[in-house]
Computed example of a mutant assay.
Amino acid sequence: MLTARADDRVLGYLGRALSLELSAVQMYSTQARLVASWGLADAAARLRNESEEELQHVNRIIERMLATGVAPSASQLRPVRLARDLSSLLQINQQFESELIELYRNAVNHCARVGDHDHRTFFEALHEDERSHHQELLGWQASLQPATAAANGRRSYR
Results as ranks from 00 to 15, higher is better:
residue 51 S to N: 06
residue 65 M to N: 08
residue 51 S to R: 06
residue 54 E to A: 08
residue 54 E to R: 10
residue 71 A to K: 09
residue 73 S to L: 13
residue 41 A to L: 02
residue 47 L to G: 00
residue 75 S to A: 09
residue 48 R to Y: 10
residue 61 I to E: 01
residue 93 N to P: 07
residue 54 E to D: 07
residue 57 H to R: 10
residue 50 E to Q: 14
residue 86 L to W: 08
residue 84 R to L: 12
residue 87 S to F: 14
residue 94 Q to L: 12
residue 69 G to F: 13
residue 53 E to I: 12
residue 42 D to Q: 02
residue 51 S to D: 07
residue 68 T to A: 07
residue 50 E to C: 03
residue 63 E to M: 14
residue 59 N to Y: 04
residue 60 R to A: 01
residue 52 E to Q: 12
residue 87 S to M: 15
residue 47 L to F: 09
residue 84 R to T: 05
residue 91 Q to L: 10
residue 67 A to L: 06
residue 45 A to F: 04
residue 89 L to I: 09
residue 85 D to T: 15
residue 71 A to M: 10
residue 66 L to T: 11
residue 95 Q to S: 01
residue 70 V to C: 03
residue 90 L to C: 07
residue 94 Q to A: 11
residue 70 V to Y: 00
residue 45 A to V: 10
residue 80 V to A: 04
residue 42 D to Y: 03
residue 86 L to P: 06
residue 82 L to F: 07
residue 67 A to M: 04
residue 52 E to F: 09
residue 81 R to W: 02
residue 77 L to K: 01
residue 72 P to H: 06
residue 74 A to Y: 14
residue 58 V to A: 06
residue 73 S to Y: 13
residue 62 I to E: 05
residue 75 S to D: 06
residue 86 L to R: 04
residue 60 R to K: 09
residue 73 S to M: 14
residue 63 E to A: 15
residue 93 N to A: 09
residue 81 R to F: 03
residue 91 Q to I: 13
residue 73 S to Q: 13
residue 51 S to P: 03
residue 75 S to T: 10
residue 82 L to E: 13
residue 69 G to R: 11
residue 57 H to E: 02
residue 93 N to V: 15
residue 55 L to G: 01
residue 93 N to F: 02
residue 90 L to A: 09
residue 75 S to P: 01
residue 61 I to L: 02
residue 94 Q to E: 14
residue 62 I to A: 03
residue 54 E to C: 08
residue 49 N to P: 06
residue 53 E to M: 08
residue 63 E to H: 11
residue 83 A to F: 00
residue 85 D to L: 12
residue 73 S to V: 12
residue 64 R to A: 03
residue 48 R to W: 13
residue 67 A to D: 05
residue 49 N to H: 13
residue 87 S to D: 13
residue 78 R to A: 05
residue 64 R to V: 04
residue 42 D to P: 00
residue 49 N to W: 14
residue 62 I to K: 09
residue 91 Q to E: 06
residue 95 Q to H: 00
residue 82 L to I: 15
residue 92 I to Q: 03
residue 77 L to E: 01
residue 92 I to S: 03
residue 59 N to H: 08
residue 66 L to C: 06
residue 68 T to N: 09
residue 75 S to H: 05
residue 95 Q to A: 03
residue 54 E to W: 12
residue 90 L to D: 08
residue 90 L to M: 15
residue 68 T to F: 09
residue 55 L to K: 15
residue 70 V to G: 00
residue 89 L to C: 05
residue 66 L to G: 07
residue 44 A to Q: 01
residue 56 Q to L: 06
residue 45 A to D: 04
residue 84 R to V: 10
residue 60 R to E: 02
residue 41 A to E: 06
residue 73 S to A: 11
residue 50 E to N: 10
residue 53 E to H: 02
residue 49 N to E: 15
residue 58 V to C: 07
residue 45 A to Q: 07
residue 80 V to H: 08
residue 48 R to D: 12
residue 78 R to K: 07
residue 83 A to T: 00
residue 53 E to K: 15
residue 66 L to K: 12
residue 83 A to C: 01
residue 91 Q to F: 02
residue 60 R to W: 11
residue 69 G to K: 14
residue 41 A to Q: 04
residue 47 L to D: 02
